[in-house]
Design a binder for these strands. Structure first.
Length: 592
RNA sequence: GUGCCCGUAGCUCAAUCGGAUAGAGCACCAGCCUUCUAAGCUGGGGGUUACAGGUUCGAUUCCUGUCGGGCACGCCA
């Protein structure tokens, strides 16, 4: 890790300010920060220290700045410092200090940008965690792209990262999928049972029904009369409107069908259940792998029940006096821990709620010794965070270790109109379909191109057009151009490590060196803020500078020292582009 | 109705945890390939940061209110 050896250049500059501050006002030892000015004529670094001290010292910022400059020790890194604007201290580096970054990058290679933020602390990132009841759609794709990029980013920033997928294999949704598949299977044999309005209607259900038929033949068959015995009538349109598949009669019809299925099928019900679960998980895993996303662990919700962890955690809450009975259900007094109301953990019928198993899940995570637990959730779950925190607090656990970045919804637009999506009816654009249309690279880059908590309008026409409007091509093209030049040159890349960089003197070159210098800072702040989009924007900016340089200056010139220096700079830029794209899950093509 | 998030160029979005003259891309206008990839570059127009107050050296950022949008408010998961 680079920062463990010699102090980085920004750290050295901060050291100079620290000494100056110590001399000027020994009693004030706050953290000193550096900023990167937007404008080149404001120097390489700007320090707002004088502005911040103004209040406590009760003096004009510019006067303080002047004194700080006087107190700063001389340094071979610094050409000059000056007071600017309301009281900024602008730092101008010497030419050699600016150029030194090229060799720093080349020596570090793909390790450039590694920072010690994580200090080898263990972090778990749990993301996607979609119900295995159907194909992943474009909303899950955003969670996958964000979570994976964030995990890469945290790793780069010095954390030990584990990726986990929480499989909701224990709930009613799985029963609904099981029943939906069975009903499709039965209709293949001529059954006339009305398909529930809230059943899963996608083509993949019919495909799984076909699999049941080839695997189990007709052994899962039961006559309609036996199935419908005692089942409430299927709701007609007068009972429930089309727009509300969750209406009570619809739910009751579904529940009674599931109950009959379990009774009639016995052991076979489990076989169907396991078959559809296995199929959906395999499909999900393949889909994500093709998206460049892999998980270290797939954690089964059912396993929490099998090991008795759900019952145990409810018992612990009860013993600690945080539960009470009301209306036949068992409630957790979460309002005592900041939640807006109390929550049920065990229903009147004796079944635990999803909330109960989720408490057990988070207790299990904490017990596994992570210093930081990051749950990437859809923004629609935001109201759920306080109750999980409340439960962990009630159990005396370190709830502050749980962090929940929210990923906002994705709206699809086709021909300027919003596309309606419904998982049950199969009317959604799948992640797989999106990848097929725009490709993995464009999809992954597009997804992280805005803040995760910002609503994302995914323009299918734009994304599927394969046009140069898609910014991923812009960044990849910069990398491919560099590779092309280096290939044409044909020399030994190792020779670039030792060549002199003093010929790098023009503004385009200094600008690129500034960007290279900024990379570790971008990694650190993006990891700290859980903001992969900051890296995406950085790469766009770096690529823009590279393209500009490419058009302004010839590289393969006759002057050997100049040629070598410029190629060294290109190689350094390529390193950062390649590494940044890797973190975002985007390929860095040699040619385009 | 209550809570959370959001409102920045015609469109899609940034803005270094309160910093200097608010920046990119697309679209529009004018230029640049007999030399390393034109999926590129150079220049130009485009803003009361939804609105009104407040906090201070300084506000797109923090606080209050209004307007507008999204989401959530189950013994579903």
């Amino acid at each position: 890790m680079t920062s463990n050896h010699t102090p980085s250049l920004p750290q050295q500059i901060i050291g100079l300010f620290t000494q100056a501050l110590h001399q000027l006002a020994p009693e004030l030892q706050g953290p000193i920060t550096l900023e990167r000015p937007r404008q080149a004529d404001h120097g390489e670094f700007a320090c707002p220290l004088a502005l911040q001290l103004s209040k406590s010292l009760r003096r004009a910022p510019r006067d303080i700045a002047q004194d700080l400059i006087q107190a700063m020790p001389a340094s071979p890194l610094i050409q000059r410092v000056e007071v600017a604007g309301p009281g900024f201290i602008n730092v101008f580096l010497t030419t050699s200090a600016k150029q030194a970054v090229v060799h720093e990058v080349l020596q570090a290679g793909l390790h450039w940008g590694e920072v010690a933020l994580g200090r080898n602390r263990r972090v778990q990132v749990e993301f996607v965690s979609s119900n295995p009841t159907g194909p992943l759609h474009v909303g899950h794709g955003r969670g996958a792209a964000f979570g994976d990029s964030l995990a890469n980013l945290l790793h780069k920033a010095g954390y030990l990262v584990q990726r986990e997928y929480y499989v909701n294999d224990a709930g009613r949704q799985m029963d609904i999928l099981t029943l939906s598949t069975w009903l499709r299977y039965l209709s293949g044999f001529g059954s006339q049972i009305a398909f529930p309005a809230n059943g899963y209607q996608g083509d993949y259900v019919s495909q799984m029904a076909e699999q049941l038929r080839s695997r189990f033949g007709s052994t899962l068959l039961h006559p309609d009369t036996a199935i419908l015995s005692g089942v409430s009538h299927a709701p007609t349109h007068s009972d429930a409107s089309d727009t509300d598949p969750d209406a009570a009669p619809v739910e009751a019809y579904m529940d009674s069908l599931i109950e009959r299925a379990k009774i009639l099928l016995g052991e076979s019900y489990r076989s169907i259940h396991d078959h559809v679960l296995t199929q959906q998980l395999a499909d999900c895993r393949d889909d994500l792998e093709e998206f460049g996303v892999t998980f270290d662990r797939w954690f089964s919700e059912q396993s929490l029940y099998d090991r008795g962890q759900v019952a145990q955690v409810v018992q612990q809450l009860d013993q600690a006096g945080h539960l009470y009975l009301q209306d036949g259900a068992r409630w957790f007094r979460s309002s005592a821990f900041g939640d807006e109301k109390d929550r049920v953990v065990q229903r009147e019928n004796g079944l635990y709620t999803y909330f109960a198993s989720d408490i057990a899940y988070h207790v299990d995570k904490l017990a596994r010794g992570f210093d930081l637990i990051i749950d990437v959730w859809g923004a629609d779950h935001h109201g759920y965070i306080p109750r999980v925190r409340a439960a962990l607090q009630a159990l005396g656990l370190k709830a502050e270790r749980l962090e929940v970045p929210l990923v906002q919804f994705v709206s699809l637009y086709r021909h300027g109109a919003k596309v309606q999506m419904s998982t049950r009816k199969g009317q959604f654009v799948t992640l797989r379909a999106l990848r097929a249309e725009v490709g993995r690279d464009a999809a992954r880059f597009f997804y992280v191109l805005r803040k995760s908590d910002q609503h994302l309008d995914f323009d299918l026409d734009l994304a599927t057009s394969q046009s140069n409007e898609n910014p991923v091509f812009y960044v990849q093209y910069a990398y491919a151009r560099i590779r092309s030049v280096l290939h044409k040159w044909g020399g030994d890349p190792a020779s670039l490590l030792t060549c002199a960089v003093s010929p790098l003197q023009n503004n385009a070159e200094f600008s690129l060196m500034q960007w290279l210098r900024a990379y570790p800072e971008i990694i650190e702040s993006a990891a700290q803020d859980r903001a992969p989009h900051a890296l995406a924007f950085y790469l766009k900016d770096l690529a823009a500078d590279l393209h500009s340089y490419y058009n302004a200056v010839p590289f393969l010139v006759d002057d050997i020292p100049v040629r070598m220096a410029r190629l060294a700079l290109l190689q350094a830029v390529a390193c950062v582009l390649q590494d940044g794209l890797r973190i975002l899950g985007v390929s860095a093509p040699e040619t385009m």
